[in-house]
Write a protein that binds this DNA or RNA. Structure first.
Lengths: 236, 236
DNA sequence: GGGGGATTTTGCGGTTGCGCAACCAGTAGA
DNA sequence: TCTACTGGTTGCGCAACCGCAAAATCCCCC
C-alpha cells in the first residue's frame, strides 16, 4: 500500500522503539499515507473510531468541544506521535477532534488490525501504553495548573510548551514553527483572545517576545519561565 | 493470602467482567487485603510504583500536588474501582496520591505480577484499558469544563458528580455518603473554600441543598443541574 | 494595486471571585 | 461540663479578567 516509505524513516520514532526492522516493515505494509491540507479535519469528536494514525510530518491540533459549544485545545502534536488510538482504550468514538495545524502527512491504519497488532508485537503495545501514560499524566498536570495558576502563568506555560515542542532557532530567538493565533492560545489556557493579546503586547514591550500575525518568537525565554513560575510581577 | 474473600464478592465488578471464576480465584489468591483508616495515605505522588490496588470498601480521594505546592483533587473513587495501576501505563512512579476519605478496605497486588496477569487474562487487560480510557476521557472533560465554565457551574457539577457516584437516598434528599469539606470541593473545582461556602449558603437559602459540617444533601437536584448547565441566575 | 476577510490591538467599564480577617458552631477529648 | 480545635460563615475591599466595541493591520486573492 505504501510504496515510497522506507523503514529507516520511522524506525527511530518512539512508537517503534524495540521493534525489529521486519516487524516495522510489516506494519508499514498495512498502512496508507495521506496528506491533509492545513485546516482540514482528520477526524471529529464523537465520530466512530475506525482508524488510528501516525503523524509523519506537520502539526496537529487536538480540539475538544464542551457541552456549551466552546472549544478547548488540550494539546498539539508533533511528527512521530501516534494519535486517534481510541482502540487502545476500547473507546468506540474519538473523544476529541484532530485538525491539521499545517499541511500534514499521516499514516493511517484500520482499527481492525489493532488487536492482532498488539498481540503480535509486544514492544509496540508497551510503547503505546507508555505514550498514553505520558499523555494522561500531562493532562492531569494541565488540569492542576488550570485550577491553581493565574492566567498570566498559564499563557506563559502554553507558549513555553509550544516552543519546546516545535521551537526552531532563528537569529531573533526561538520561533514557534507553525501558525498559532491568539485565539488558539486562549483555547489552550481557558481565557479570552483579548487577554492573551494584552499579555503578549506587554511582553513584547518588555522585549521578551516578538510576535505578529499567527507567529510568536521567544526572545528571552528565561523571562517567560519566570512568569510561568509566578516569580515575576509581569511586564509593568 | 486472602482467606476470607470469596469470588462472589468481586466477580461482578467491572475489572473482572468476562473472566472465569477460576481466573478470578487465581487472582484473589495473589492479593492481600488491607484496611486503611480514614485520612491515611495509601500511596503518595512521586513514590515508586510497587503495587496496584482494588478498592473493596470505602472512598478514596485522588490528590495531585502542583508545582506551586497547592492541592488539586481530580477525582474520588468508589468501591470496585482499580487504582494505582501505574504499571499498565509503564509509569515508574505514581502520578498522584491516594488518600482514604473514610475507612477503606483495599486489595493489593505487587506490580511484579502485572505483565504475567494481563498476558494470561486478556479479559482483564481489556477491562483495565477500558477503565483507563474512561478516566482519560473524563479528565479531558474536566479540563474543558474548568477552562470554560464559571465557578458556580463547576461547583454544581462537582456536587452532582459526587452525589451520582456515592449518593444515598435519605428522607431529606440525596446525601453524599462520605465527609466532604468546603476545602475538598474547592480543590476539585479550582476555587477557594470561601467561594464554595458562599455558593452552598445561597443554595441552602433557596432550599436546594442542606449542608453541614462535611456533609451535603441534595434536596432539589434538578435545580442544581440547572446551575451546572448555566441556565440559572443562581440563588439571588 | 485594490478590495475583503481574518487577526490583532486597545480602551473602557463591569463583574466575578479572591484575599483577608474576624467570628461562629459543632465535635472531640479531658 | 469545660475547653481546644477543626471546619464553616460572612463582610468588605480590591484586583484580575472578561465583554463589548471600535479601530488598526496584515495577508490573500482577484
Amino acid at each position: 500500500m505504501v510504496h515510497n516509505l522506507d523503514v529507516s524513516l520511522v524506525c527511530d520514532l518512539p512508537p517503534f522503539m524495540g521493534m525489529a526492522e521486519q516487524e516495522i516493515a510489516d506494519l508499514l505494509a498495512q498502512a496508507r499515507a495521506v496528506r491533509y491540507p492545513k485546516g482540514k479535519n482528520i477526524f471529529s469528536q464523537g465520530e466512530k473510531a475506525g482508524n488510528f494514525f501516525l503523524l509523519l510530518d506537520g502539526h496537529i491540533q487536538v480540539v475538544k468541544l464542551t457541552q456549551g459549544g466552546e472549544q478547548v485545545v488540550p494539546r498539539y502534536m508533533s511528527p512521530g506521535e501516534l494519535f486517534g488510538i481510541a482502540r487502545a482504550l476500547r473507546l468506540d468514538a474519538y473523544p476529541a477532534s484532530a485538525v491539521a495545524a499545517v499541511d500534514c502527512v499521516v499514516l493511517i491504519w484500520p482499527n481492525a488490525i489493532w488487536d492482532d497488532l498488539v498481540g503480535r508485537h509486544p514492544a509496540f503495545a508497551t510503547n503505546t501504553y507508555r505514550i498514553i501514560g505520558q499523555r494522561l499524566t500531562e493532562t492531569q498536570q494541565q488540569l492542576a495548573e488550570l485550577a491553581t495558576a493565574k492566567v498570566e502563568q498559564r499563557v506563559a506555560n502554553a507558549i513555553l510548551k509550544l516552543a519546546k515542542q516545535t521551537g526552531r532557532r532563528t537569529d531573533e530567538g526561538v520561533l514557534i514553527d507553525f501558525p498559532v493565533s491568539r485565539q488558539d492560545i486562549s483555547e489552550m489556557t481557558g481565557t479570552t483572545l483579548h487577554t492573551v493579546s494584552r499579555l503578549l503586547s506587554a511582553w513584547e514591550q518588555a522585549g521578551w517576545v516578538r510576535s505578529g500575525r499567527r507567529k510568536i518568537t521567544l526572545v528571552e525565554g528565561h523571562k517567560i519561565v519566570l512568569v510561568a513560575n509566578g516569580e515575576s510581577g509581569g511586564a509593568a
